[in-house]
């Protein structure tokens, strides 16, 4: 009997030991999976970076969504064999990328030019109307023209003169200028209203300064009618899943637009820059972008132009719009930024 009890006890102990061993091995497996989350796998090597064109700098504009979409659009045009693909000066223009983007995305308040948005909108604009090259339709040229018209100017050649549209403009302008309302709205005889009553004038500026200058050079994607911008949410995806999505898009010749939370990008120089420039703004930005609940105060869009394996880790070509010498640009190890992914946008079949 005693022997039987001892045997049972030993069995129990053995089970506990086995369980502990299994648990330990599971932990060690998951630990090794964690370390290998950013491994090369079968990603292969794809480099579409040349198709994205020159590195640009958006400066203090909040137009990363337009810059990243313009680079992705350039890739699409190159895929179709656009004759100027090899020419660095050929760049889908930012005014064209923002031209049809409505709802407070299309305003450039002079001096405070922040205007957040979504790349899908920029892609829709460019797919719908085609794009001029930046040399014919430069954002600088447009700004100069806008400055000549008054302090604020909505950029929207698609705008109608309907009063509902006008009200949207005014509301959006109030948002963009950090005012609870724009003084003068409602009084159609006021100077302010005259100044703000700009869609027709904006269309005119666009046409005369930009539209006409690239009339013959507008690049239209041949398959524009059969494709559309698509977005996948990545917040609940693991890093390997995010990488698989990016790899598959790159394999199908796409250059995805990746939305990242800059706060979680592991590049010290970038974090130092963010801390210095935006210390007091972070919380407000989170609220502004609707990202507060996601714990992200600095959402940013970049275009992914390639993948390769380096020292056993996947690296991605990040085409950023902060100038050539920015720290978060070029071939970046996956471990530095993939976990910061928010969503991915690309041009796919309808």
């Amino acid at each position: 009997m005693l022997g039987m009890r001892n045997l049972l006890k030993m069995k129990k102990l053995f089970c506990v030991l086995i369980l502990a061993a299994v648990t330990a091995s599971t932990v060690s497996v998951s630990a090794s999976v964690g370390a290998g989350d950013y491994g090369c796998g079968n990603s292969g090597s794809i480099d579409l970076s040349q198709r994205l064109g020159a590195v640009r700098n958006q400066g203090v504009n909040g137009l990363c969504w337009a810059y990243s979409a313009a680079a992705a659009m350039r890739n699409e045009l190159c895929r179709e064999g656009h004759p100027r693909c090899g020419d660095a000066s050929f760049q889908p223009s930012i005014p064209d990328a923002t031209a049809c983007a409505r709802k407070n995305l299309n305003i450039f308040p002079v001096g405070k030019e922040s205007s957040g948005g979504r790349p899908e909108r920029a892609l829709s604009c460019m797919l719908g109307k085609g794009v001029c090259s930046e040399e014919n339709a430069s954002i600088e040229k447009y700004r100069q023209a806008v400055k000549g018209m008054g302090e604020f100017c909505p950029i929207d050649p698609c705008a109608s003169d309907k009063s509902s549209d006008m009200k949207n403009y005014i509301d959006n302008l109030a948002n963009a200028t950090q005012q609870s309302s724009v003084h003068g709205f409602g009084d159609e005889n006021s100077d302010e209203y005259a100044l703000l009553n700009l869609p027709a004038k904006a269309a005119c500026v666009y046409k005369s300064v930009i539209g006409e200058s690239c009339k013959r050079n507008r690049a239209v994607l041949r398959e524009a009618k059969t494709v559309a911008p698509q977005t996948l949410m990545l917040l609940k995806k693991s890093s390997p899943e995010v990488m698989e999505i990016l790899n598959n898009l790159l394999k199908s010749d796409k250059t995805p637009i990746l939305a990242v939370c800059l706060d979680n990008v592991a590049i010290p120089e970038l974090q130092k820059g963010l801390a210095a420039a935006e210390k007091a703004e972070k919380a407000e930005k989170a609220e502004e972008s609707g990202a507060a609940g996601r714990g992200c105060g600095n959402a940013h869009a970049v275009t992914i132009g390639g993948v390769r394996c380096h020292n056993g880790e996947a690296e991605y070509y990040v085409h950023n719009s902060w100038g050539k010498n920015a720290p978060f640009h070029g071939w970046i190890p996956a471990s530095k930024f993939i976990a910061a992914s928010l969503d991915v946008t690309f041009i796919g079949k309808k």
Partner: peptide, 22 residues
């Protein structure tokens, strides 16, 4: 200056160049 408050809850991105802001 206080930054704008968007009515939309969608995740808008702006990504100004931190070095230029500095």
């Amino acid at each position: 200056m206080k930054t704008k408050k968007a009515s939309s809850t969608r995740l808008h991105m702006s990504g100004e160049n931190p070095a230029d802001l500095l």
